[in-house]
Computed example of a mutant assay.
Amino acid sequence: MLSNDSSIQLPFTVESVAKVLAWGAAPDMAPHSHRQIAEWCDRFWCRHLDVDAPEEIERLLPILADVETQWDLYLANTYSLDELRTRSFENERMPTAWFEEWLKAACR
């Protein structure tokens, strides 16, 4: 069941990362889409781009960047330029195995 709100409203914490990646791994039960998850990961990453983040956050930043990057690459490799310009991709899903791997890496 997807939320009507277009963005995830969670604090940028380790616990939130685990929750969001778990949503990605189980999209049928998730309140947000893979698109919204990728956008949240990008916002989290950007917030810590130019600051010295605590070690627990610092180790998550490559994972968050990978989620957003893989979203962009997945779309670019799946759709034509015209489709990329006109579709919302709200119902598009990346492979859930990717989220499972990101979740494992985040919880180490």
Score class of each variant (00 low, 15 high):
S3I: 07
N4E: 15
N4C: 12
S6H: 12
I8R: 03
I8L: 09
Q9D: 14
L10E: 10
F12H: 11
F12G: 06
T13K: 07
V14A: 15
V14R: 13
V17E: 01
A18H: 10
A18S: 12
A18N: 11
A18F: 11
A18D: 09
V20F: 03
L21V: 05
A22D: 10
W23H: 06
W23F: 10
G24M: 04
G24C: 06
A25E: 07
D28K: 15
H34M: 04
R35G: 03
Q36T: 05
I37M: 04
E39F: 06
D42N: 12
F44P: 01
W45G: 01
W45S: 03
C46I: 11
R47Q: 09
R47G: 04
R47P: 02
L49K: 14
L49C: 13
D50P: 05
D50K: 13
V51R: 07
V51K: 07
D52K: 09
D52C: 11
A53M: 06
P54R: 11
E55K: 08
E56L: 06
E58N: 08
R59Q: 07
L60Q: 00
L61C: 02
L61F: 01
L61T: 02
L61E: 00
L61W: 01
P62G: 02
I63Y: 00
A65S: 13
D66M: 04
D66Y: 01
V67I: 08
V67E: 00
V67C: 03
E68H: 13
Q70S: 11
W71V: 01
D72K: 15
D72L: 15
L73E: 14
Y74S: 13
L75R: 01
N77H: 12
Y79F: 09
S80P: 06
D82E: 14
L84G: 07
R87C: 08
S88A: 14
S88L: 11
E90K: 13
N91C: 13
N91H: 12
N91G: 12
E92Y: 03
R93I: 08
M94Y: 03
T96W: 06
T96A: 11
A97I: 12
W98P: 00
F99W: 02
E100N: 09
E100W: 06
E100S: 09
W102D: 00
L103H: 07
L103V: 05
L103I: 05
K104H: 15
A105W: 05
A105N: 09
A105T: 10
C107I: 10
C107F: 09
C107Y: 10
